[in-house]
Simulated scan of single mutants.
Amino acid sequence: MPQPFDVLETLWELLISLKTYSIILATFKRLFITIGISTLLGLSLGLISGMHYQLEAFLKPIVVSLRTLPVISIIVIVLILYGNVFSLYIITFLLLFPIIYQAELDGVKHIDPLLISVLKLECNRCSPRGIRMVYLPLSLPFLRTGIIQSAGLGIKILVVAEYISQAKVSIGREIYLGRINLEYNLVFAWSIILIIVVLLVEHLVEKYLITTYKN
Rank of each mutant, 00 (worst) to 15 (best):
I131M: 03
E104L: 08
L136H: 09
F93T: 03
M1A: 09
V63F: 04
T92N: 14
L18N: 13
I193V: 15
V63R: 01
L45K: 03
I164V: 15
I193N: 10
F142H: 11
N84R: 14
E104G: 00
S170G: 13
K156E: 03
L47N: 02
Q149R: 12
N181H: 01
L114E: 14
C123H: 08
F93Y: 10
V205L: 06
M51I: 04
S49D: 01
L115E: 11
I148P: 09
K19T: 12
L43A: 08
G107Q: 10
P4C: 07
L47K: 01
T10K: 15
I210Q: 13
P137Y: 01
L81I: 11
L177F: 08
Y163I: 00
I23D: 12
I74H: 10
L25D: 00
H52L: 11
I74S: 10
I75K: 04
A103P: 10
I195K: 05
I171P: 04
L121W: 09
K29M: 11
Q54M: 11
V7R: 06
L136W: 14
I23N: 06
L69I: 13
L95H: 03
V159A: 08
M133I: 00
G46E: 03
S165N: 09
G130Q: 05
V134D: 02
F97G: 03
V160W: 02
I33G: 02
N124Q: 13
K109S: 07
T92D: 07
L119T: 03
I37V: 15
L158A: 09
I62P: 06
N181W: 00
L121S: 14
L121F: 08
W12L: 12
F28E: 01
I48E: 05
L177C: 05
P70Q: 06
L11A: 12
I90N: 06
N124F: 09
M133Q: 09
V159P: 09
S38P: 10
E162L: 04
I24M: 15
R129C: 01
S165F: 07
C123F: 00
L114D: 13
T10C: 05
T212W: 15
R173S: 13
A57L: 14
L140W: 14
I155A: 09
F5N: 14
K156D: 02
L140T: 08
L115G: 11
E13Q: 15
V108Q: 11
L121K: 07
V201R: 07
S49G: 02
E206G: 10
E104M: 14
W190N: 07
F188P: 06
Y101D: 02
G130M: 05
L158T: 00
L96T: 04
Y184R: 02
L43I: 05
L11S: 11
V197T: 11
G146C: 03
R125A: 09
I192A: 07
N84H: 02
L69T: 13
A161D: 01
S127G: 11
A167R: 09
K214F: 04
L31N: 03
R30F: 01
Y135N: 02
G42P: 06
P4W: 12
V76D: 00
I62A: 12
L204Y: 15
L41W: 10
N185Q: 14
S44M: 12
N124M: 10
F97N: 02
E174W: 09
S87G: 12
C126W: 04
H110T: 00
K120D: 11
M51Q: 13
G42T: 00
Q149S: 14
